[in-house]
Design a protein around this nucleic acid. Sequence first.
DNA 1: ACAATTATGGCACGCCGTGACGAATTGTAG
DNA 2: CTACAATTCGTCACGGCGTGCCATAATTGT
Lengths: 197, 197
Amino acid sequence: MQDEQGGRSRGRPRGTSARALEVIALDLYSTVGFEETTVEDIAAAGGVSRRTFFRYFDSKAAVLWNEFDNEVAALREAFDDVADNVPMMEAIRHVVVLVNRYTADDMPELRTRMHLIGSVPALQASAAPHYDAWERAVSDFAAIRTGQLADTLIPLAIGRTTLAACRAAYEQWIVIDGSDLTDHLDAALRALASGFA
Amino acid sequence: MQDEQGGRSRGRPRGTSARALEVIALDLYSTVGFEETTVEDIAAAGGVSRRTFFRYFDSKAAVLWNEFDNEVAALREAFDDVADNVPMMEAIRHVVVLVNRYTADDMPELRTRMHLIGSVPALQASAAPHYDAWERAVSDFAAIRTGQLADTLIPLAIGRTTLAACRAAYEQWIVIDGSDLTDHLDAALRALASGFA
DNA sequence: ACAATTATGGCACGCCGTGACGAATTGTAG
DNA sequence: CTACAATTCGTCACGGCGTGCCATAATTGT
């Protein structure tokens, strides 16, 4: 979003980028601690003022959710490309696993980010709106397949439970060192589709 | 907890009770609005100081979760009373529906509370630790039935997805006027146990 | 009376998030 | 070259939350 310099030529140049602040904040959160880090600290390390930080991010916690929000868009696109003959729960599983394929370079950052989200109460609290958007992407797909509206019981439940299963998978991935994320996701979603029988 | 006057005889008597502050706060949140209400307002309406409010509740949002936390204890007790021959997912469904049987008198307050939790972002954010405790109660039961540890993938997923389904049911109950809460819960948990097939 | 106990009130502080306003830095038109 | 428009930044101020700290009030037991 910020990268596109098409049209934006005039005006004072940015002192930094959202991505740069994100890296700095992620480092401080994981080394110093989230509560122990003030927004002033992040801004100073980024060479900008505290007020400018809040122009790049809505809150101290919002830094962690940039990549996650991107995944929601990827999720919707992947759902659009699913063939109609694939069963619903199977399609959901394939799409989720596909979207969660990260390169080896992104793994360390993903790991620290998920570890923070899973361990810091203030960050867990900030998850709600982002989780909602993710669930909604699944619910919309389930609505099409079931022929019901997205805000009715079954599509809603499918969206919510799918994320719930994925969160359990992510939690296992963080705890069990050296394990494969997609394996956990696949196992959790298979269990969900089988009704945990 | 506060009611037991066993041993606590000496000392200055309390100026109010947690329950009284809860009723006042619930009223202000639903009429004036959560963001528009300050802790100072609640304290003043309760005849105490702002500082005293924070001795009764950890945060402005914690007021809403008192009853919910009680349900977690009821959940655990109900799981202990389940017969061993009842299938796991069926047992979970029965227990959840049983615990969510409220009297007609409690319905209005439950409704306003759940409506607030479902509509105010700051309250959704405050849900995480309470949801975790609820999920954990289910995971512990699933751990016994599956013979696995409670913090492994399947029990974790069962706890998380069960709450996710219940949240979808609650949301429907709030939206659809005059509907029965236990019906939604039963339907959502049956769908979960069937793998949404 | 006096001590012990328990709850309260007031004060101060750090931090978060937001609004307002002027200054800084660039490109563009005249 | 100069005036102007556009965009970002920094500073200041404010309200609100949550938390120590300590003095004070209210009650019971000795």
